[in-house]
Design a protein around this nucleic acid. Structure first.
Lengths: 186, 186, 186, 186
DNA sequence: AATGAATGAGTGTTCATTCAT
DNA sequence: GATGAATGAACACTCATTCAT
């Protein structure tokens, strides 16, 4: 039932925005409002959980991909990760966008932020492991840069410009990442 | 008075989210609700105008910067533009984020989208003008990539991580852009 | 609950005019505003339904009375109908008056007009059935005349001048109707 | 200016109902709201004055007509009066209807009611003067009846059924009145 | 006298949440 | 547990009225 409610909420939030009513969400889930409140203390709680799960899944995806960096060339890892992220079902930035703004004003803010930060840490660690293959002056800055770059391009491509969401885009993005990581900091 | 209302609305929206009441906005502007509605037909209209102005100012900023590409080395242009964008008062993506989600559900959607698209066109034109200095396979894809990259990093830096908003960041971002533009598409 | 709301609305509208607030109506009905809106989509909808019911009840009353014209002398039928109409609880023109003006500006206008017209049709049919007992030049005009005459006198008596609402009034009104119907159009 | 405001108010009230705003009325009169309030202390005051004038003009019309009863046959007087009343510009029951409901809830109620009562007094006096030509049991009841009958039919004809507003209607209504007044009270 | 921008109390309506069944 | 009718605080918005110019 929790699953049914979350799925319905995701659909409804994306379609109608966070203004969607709990009654509508309950109806879409095929349950009554009462039941919804049996499992979630408030509308915000649904949003928080939705966001938490969404982020968790992405963190896992990225973590797994980067783990391979030990045994696989960096460019290949990047290319694989990007191709994966660019598959529409892996990412739902429409939902992300609807929720982030609201959840940020919730006491649950703390539980849910630090999303990009976690990526940055994982990435910084990865970069450090890669040693002299990467020519980066400041691992923190580089990680910050790369995480934002990749997430934003991926989200934009999936949501705003599916027309450009082709292998060429993945290639170019991979090239951008590699060029930066390997370019000489002069 | 229009200015007073818009400034107050920007402040209140950023602090309280789009849920902020029109009465609160009016109070923050030091006027009555009635006056607010004398100048804006609805709360949405305020959001739309706020978004429109914000975008207009950015478009102008970017347009001016890129115009110099004829007479100035690309890297310098990029570095200047980034430094400018990274100055906090030039950009208010907190506001941007609050509004975009709401305005997107408004009939004014059309007037307000096409923001990034305009940047992309300007940039594509610029890149073409630069001739063989840039080694890019597809101007459309490259522009899409670069616009999203720059905007997202700049916004993240200003809003989420002011600690990293240093000259080093501007440098690194400039390097990322240049490396991509000049790297061999091999 | 629908009944409770309608009864309360009738009371409140008569006492305070159509300006009465929905919150007041709900309070008078002993329910919350929310409940009121669970059963009626708008304040207008309450007015429309109130008017519809009021008219329906009158149409039924008049229809039944005139049906007896086959087996009962016309004067007796008229006298009975008038006596019935003049009983205060059969008619609430105070309410009628408050509502008509508002409902007329509603999309429901069409559903609610044609009230007197229905009476006129029933009456015209009745007059035709009565054959040469009635000396009337134009059934349409005569019906129009008589319906307006009876309704207005009845309403005025009940609302404005209860002091005159006596058997004598019923008698006189019956006499007026009979005299007209049977007078020689010369 | 008072005239301009009253005329505009009459037009606007008829078209939009009593809900019409004072700004709209002022605009229709070609003056500013401020000026409107220079001459009328409130919106209600406009309605009250409008109603007062409307009633005054009708009272005068009827008074003049009935005064001729001394020198002219009753039927002729009635016929003339009805023909006059049935001319659309003499009567504006649309306005009357809009106003009556609102003004009745105003402290000015007392100044404005007693409209029909004045007709009834004039008519009762007239009927008494006519002596044995009229066979009426109770002058008060008869006057009440006749005033309501005539006003309601005239108003209905002008407002609701202009199609029937023909000489035939005037004739029939005159016949109805005469038949009643002259019929034997058995 | 005339103006019309400014006011703010008051309205209809919505919707997250509760709780008796 | 599940239900959904009931709740009522809160909101966007209107408009009669005022008053500085």
């Amino acid at each position: 039932m929790v699953e049914a409610i979350l799925e319905a909420a995701a659909r409804v939030f994306v379609k109608e925005g966070y203004g969607a009513t709990t009654n509508r969400i309950a109806a879409a889930a095929g349950v009554s409002v009462g039941s919804l409140y049996q499992y979630f203390p408030s509308k915000d709680a649904i949003a928080v959980e939705l966001l938490r799960r969404y982020r968790e899944s992405l963190v896992e995806l990225v973590g797994n991909a980067l783990a391979e960096v030990e045994t696989t060339p960096f460019e290949v890892v990047v290319r694989r990760l990007l191709a994966d992220l660019l598959r529409a079902e892996r990412i739902d930035p429409g939902l992300h966008r609807v929720l982030i703004e609201q959840v940020l004003r919730t006491p649950a803010r703390r539980e849910v932020t630090g999303f990009e930060e976690r990526f940055e840490e994982v990435l910084a660690t990865t970069l450090r492991k890669m040693g002299k293959r990467v020519k980066v002056r400041d691992y923190e800055v580089a990680s910050f840069l790369l995480v934002r770059v990749v997430l934003s391009v991926v989200q934009s491509a999936v949501v705003d410009r599916p027309r450009l969401n082709t292998p060429l885009l993945a290639d170019e993005l991979a090239r951008l990442v590699s060029a930066y990581v390997e370019s000489d900091p002069a």
